[in-house]
Lab assay of single mutants.
Amino acid sequence: QTVVIGDTTYHLNNPEAAQQIAKELAKKYGLKVVISGNTIKLK
C-alpha cells in the first residue's frame, strides 16, 4: 500500500493502517483522500 502526501511517499505493508492514517490526516488537515488501485493520495 502506497500513501502519497504532497511530495512524500510512504510504503505500508498494512492496507487498513494506511487507509486509517490517510483518513485521520485528511480530517486533521482538511485534505481530500483519493484512492486508486493500491495508492492513497492526500490532496
Rank of each mutant, 00 (worst) to 15 (best):
Q1I: 15
Q1S: 12
Q1G: 09
T2G: 04
T2E: 04
V3L: 14
V3Q: 02
V3R: 00
V3M: 06
V3C: 12
V3E: 01
V4F: 05
V4Q: 11
V4G: 04
V4P: 02
V4A: 04
V4N: 05
I5T: 02
I5W: 14
I5N: 03
I5M: 06
G6T: 03
D7G: 13
D7T: 14
D7E: 12
T8M: 13
T8G: 04
T8W: 15
T8H: 13
T8I: 13
T8F: 14
T9W: 11
T9E: 07
T9I: 13
Y10D: 01
Y10A: 03
L12E: 01
L12M: 10
L12W: 12
L12H: 04
N13V: 09
N13R: 09
N14R: 03
N14D: 13
N14A: 06
N14L: 11
N14M: 08
N14S: 14
N14Q: 05
P15R: 10
P15H: 11
E16Q: 09
A17D: 12
A17M: 12
A17T: 13
A17S: 08
A18H: 04
A18Q: 02
Q19D: 06
Q19R: 12
Q20P: 00
Q20N: 07
Q20M: 10
Q20L: 11
I21D: 00
I21M: 14
A22H: 01
A22W: 09
A22R: 01
A22I: 12
K23I: 11
K23R: 12
K23Y: 14
E24G: 04
E24I: 14
L25T: 00
A26Y: 12
A26G: 04
K27N: 07
K27S: 08
K28G: 00
K28T: 03
K28I: 07
Y29T: 05
Y29M: 03
Y29N: 05
Y29W: 05
G30T: 03
G30K: 08
G30F: 06
L31N: 04
L31P: 02
L31S: 03
K32Y: 11
K32T: 14
V33D: 00
V33H: 01
V33L: 12
V33E: 01
V33R: 00
V34M: 05
V34W: 07
I35V: 10
I35S: 02
S36L: 11
G37Q: 03
G37L: 04
G37M: 04
G37W: 04
N38M: 06
N38D: 08
N38W: 05
N38E: 02
T39E: 10
T39Q: 07
T39R: 04
T39W: 02
T39Y: 06
T39M: 07
T39V: 12
I40M: 01
I40W: 01
I40S: 00
I40A: 00
K41Q: 13
K41M: 15
K41W: 15
K41I: 15
L42Y: 04
L42I: 10
K43H: 13
K43N: 08
K43A: 11
